[in-house]
Amino acid sequence: MRRAEITTAVLLAAFSIYLMWKSAELPIGWLPEEGPGGGAFPFWLAVIMLGSCIWIIVNWFRRSSPPSQSSEPFMDNYAVKRFALVGGGVTAMIGLIHILGVFGSLPLFLIYYIRFLGRHSWATTLAIALSAPVVVFFFFDVALRIIMPKGYLEPLFLPLYDIFL
């Protein structure tokens, strides 16, 4: 936990400096006739971010915040494994949207999670995994006219568009 606390604080401090530098692409001072420049608001806030990070780092050295006193691991084996399996699954689902679209990747994700992580029966798994895309299609594509990405599966949907849209 202690190591995670300092690593995070240093990374966030670096990100704050990046934001300061990035804000400074626009004027950060006072422009005559125009008021504060466009970069001023984010620049000074990024300075505040950096300041709080330094404060967090000082607290770490003085061991005055709970995470800087804790000797427990930031994540134990169970947490790391779960995080990898679940986070990996979600990442893969979003990645697959680019290729298979929502209607390909959504059922795959549900099957992966419910069947392989949850160890539920195939009947439960397939009932949810196959009904979810149908609900999504009729709710978003048909009712709301928000067209979900289809990736390379787009041609398969052309007949459905003809009927429902």
């Binding site: 949207i97 419910i114 160890r119 539920h120 949810i128």
Partner: peptide, 17 residues
């Protein structure tokens, strides 16, 4: 293990919408 994947899916699809 059924609720969680449904919430993940709702979040992703809702976020896209």
């Amino acid at each position: 293990t059924i609720l969680a994947p449904v919430i993940f899916a709702l979040s992703i699809i809702g976020g896209y919408a």
